[in-house]
Write a protein that binds this DNA or RNA. Structure first.
Ligand SMILES: [Mn+2]
Ligand SMILES: [Mn+2]
Ligand SMILES: [Mn+2]
Ligand SMILES: [Mn+2]
Lengths: 217, 217
DNA sequence: GTAAAATGTTAGAATAGACTAACAAAATTT
DNA sequence: AAATTTTGTTAGTCTATTCTAACATTTTAC
């Protein structure tokens, strides 16, 4: 009923809506690495399927049905990532690409079994929430590290980028979810932060890195 | 380089070659549930990719490259089935359909990890050999139960049909791989067999069932 | 508040994979 | 050996997904 291609569009729409509020065709096509007219005509198709509300020159919106469909794909994606890390021994930097494919497998049983074997996890290995069986997910209001101040002590709760390069960067510094971070200094010129955690002292993180780290107080 | 669709064609060619010797377009199209002209034009495409030898009105043949490619997909399929049964707790009747999809996942790491976690298995849950990393598989010369005689005592080594219906039929009779079967009688009229195994006595199996059971002496 | 830039849309074409209808060759029956 | 059936091929069409080129609208800049 919904093709693999369409599933990827829906997922993109949901995540762009989450990070930017409004979604336009330019963002969508950039996100998916396709040209604008391609995205445009797919939006019309998804509108016919009642998954998207499309009006010329207006921002794109998912319908409730579209949100649910997208949420269920993200559920499959994140359950897969969790399974790959917890049950198969992959590193958190290895799983996104594989999950990107496995999320399109058609088999209720397969994902229900994963869920069960994992003990019904609520978060994936990158700290993102796993949507429930209705495709609904609760976004906990984390802060980016960028918004913290000198002296703050916070815990690393999630990362907003699952690329292998970024996660290998964190691996190299033994920076893991749950780590207790203390902010020692913030360079006012470039907003880079000096922090300590675990045994580590005086790690300097650029603002580009800090804005990808979500923390709780 | 090879699409999901093409992968399924290659697999079909390999398994038809194994079971029938020569493969023609009619068999191939029936096996895949497509029309003859569709199969025909795909054969020309695969011939251009040097995966198939195509000559008008001649039987279809896989090239060495084609055999290897097909073997590697079957490797992924069977490793998956083994993983689903041994590591995830699925029944042998549930795994074929899921594996039919997962065999197309592009990730060396994923299947290598499965292989490692499984301890480098040589056979899948249905008793079929798992091809090696070069796509080569050794076919052990099993016999179908049909070819056995009254008084023979044999072990169930493999089944040649992985459909859920057939495997549920075997489940209902607690007939598993490895079972030691003794042939009590063969009905000459319809070739149905009366056998005993485990605690079971006097199970009658039709010839249709017997020919799908591969045994060792 | 016009001009320029950015964004969005339409039209037309390409490729992959499937189909039907019509024709051709090979195999099988009489 | 001719007729019939089966099998295989060609030609043309369709849908899904992508593209480029051209045009339209909206937003931003001056
Ligand atoms: Mn991911
Ligand atoms: Mn995907
Ligand atoms: Mn199988
Ligand atoms: Mn398949």
């Amino acid at each position: 009923m919904v093709s693999l291609t369409e599933e990827n569009y829906l997922k993109a729409l949901l995540s762009l809506a989450k990070e930017k509020g409004e979604v336009n065709v330019t963002d969508l096509s950039k996100h998916l690495g396709i040209k604008m007219p391609t995205a445009n005509s797919m939006m019309k198709k998804l509108a016919e399927k009642k998954l998207v509300v499309y009006e010329s020159y207006k921002p794109l919106r998912l319908t409730e049905k579209g949100k649910k469909t997208a949420g269920l794909i993200i559920r499959k994606h994140r359950l897969t990532e969790m399974f790959l890390v917890d049950k198969m021994g992959f590193g958190w930097e290895q799983v996104h690409e594989i999950a990107e494919q496995i999320e399109h497998i058609h088999s209720q049983d397969f994902f229900e079994k994963m869920d069960e074997l994992l003990g019904y996890p609520k978060f994936d290995p990158h700290g993102s929430p796993i949507p429930d069986k209705n495709g609904k997910m609760e976004w906990i209001s984390y802060q980016t590290l960028t918004h913290c101040n000198v002296g703050d002590v916070v815990h690393l709760a999630a990362v907003t980028n699952s690329s292998a390069e970024f996660l290998k960067f964190l691996n190299a510094r033994e920076l893991k979810l749950g780590a207790r971070l203390r902010i020692l200094a913030i360079e006012s010129f470039d907003k880079s932060m000096t922090i300590t955690y675990d045994g580590r002292s005086d790690e300097v993180l650029s603002a580009l890195v800090c804005e990808k780290l979500l923390v709780t107080l």
